[in-house]
């Protein structure tokens, strides 16, 4: 026997606070920036050493010049503004509809059996197939574009929310019911908070889809926006503007995704 005293203390009086640490994240962004910088360098070399003819690949400077040129004529900001507005409106409205439909289908067996085959079929329709119909119904104005973005944003949120709500811990739901929570109060107290991580990943997918559907909407029948810039540049052979539109779309998509990422961090801190 060892002489050590054995202390019997119930473990539950010590608070085991789990501390999370992320090591070395300060320099991680450098790693993420290095690849775009390398690609940019490769692009510069490819054009200046004439590996690729200029009519196929414009020089980086000409793209920058094109940006300044469009900005000087107030077109760049107008295009960015109108495209962002369409994405924002469509994303917000589509997410709300997706959340509502997803909640309905995820919570009610009846709604699931009744609605999900139809919604599944509507989801399977390719984005461009909606465009002629929307233009016919809603005209060439903003409505048809925002409507298409709504369609794009709706389904990812709907799918993730409906799926996650079906798998909320049944013990927590039983607790909620036993304590008199039902209907909307049970949804907002137990079920929705439990699926916050799924909602966020749905929102991220929805945002990516929103940009996708925006370009689809603007490519066919529009007079402004980044999709219009794409199709117009193609028609006029302005490859510098074509590249500009692609770069701007990449930057805007990444920026808006980062914004959702900030929202994600905030929400997960609160509900995660």
């Amino acid at each position: 026997m060892t002489g050590e005293a054995v202390s019997l203390s119930s473990s539950d009086f010590g608070t085991a606070v789990v501390e999370r640490r992320r090591g070395g994240s300060r320099w991680r962004w450098l790693l993420g920036v290095s690849l775009p910088l390398a690609l940019f360098g490769l692009w510069w070399l490819a054009t200046h050493l004439a590996w690729v003819p200029v009519f196929k690949l414009p020089t980086p400077e000409s793209v920058v010049t094109a940006a300044f040129d469009l900005a000087a004529r107030d077109l760049l900001w107008q295009y960015i503004g109108i495209s962002t507005q369409r994405v924002f409106l469509g994303f917000v409205i589509g997410s709300i509809i997706g959340l509502a439909l997803g909640s309905l289908v995820g919570l009610s067996r009846f709604a699931d059996s009744f609605l999900s085959p139809t919604i599944g079929a509507a989801r399977a329709v390719p984005s461009l197939a909606w465009v002629p119909l929307l233009i016919l119904y809603l005209g060439f104005g903003e409505d048809s574009k925002v409507a298409l973005v709504i369609i794009g944003a709706l389904f990812p949120v709907y799918t993730t929310v409906a799926g996650a709500l079906r798998h909320v811990d049944p013990q927590l739901v039983e607790f909620g019911r036993a304590y008199g929570y039902h209907g909307a109060r049970l949804l907002t107290t137990v079920q929705l908070p439990a699926v916050v991580p799924a909602i966020i990943s749905g929102l991220r997918l929805a945002l990516a889809q929103a940009w996708l559907f925006l370009v689809a909407a603007e490519l066919v029948g529009s007079t402004m926006g980044l999709g219009f810039l794409l199709i117009e540049s193609q028609n006029n052979g302005r490859i510098d503007r074509l590249f500009l539109a692609i770069v701007v779309l990449a930057v805007l998509g990444k920026l808006s995704d980062t914004l959702v990422g900030v929202l994600e961090r905030f929400l997960l801190k609160r509900w995660g």
């Binding site: 013990q171 927590l172 039983e174 607790f175 019911r177 036993a178 304590y179 008199g180 039902h182 107290t189 137990v190 908070p193 439990a194 916050v196 609160r270 509900w271 995660g272």
Partner: peptide
Amino acid sequence: PVDQRSAVAFQEPRLLPW
């Protein structure tokens, strides 16, 4: 069925983790 005069505690704590 859900009576305000009674309360239940389960075998598991069933606390909401968030």
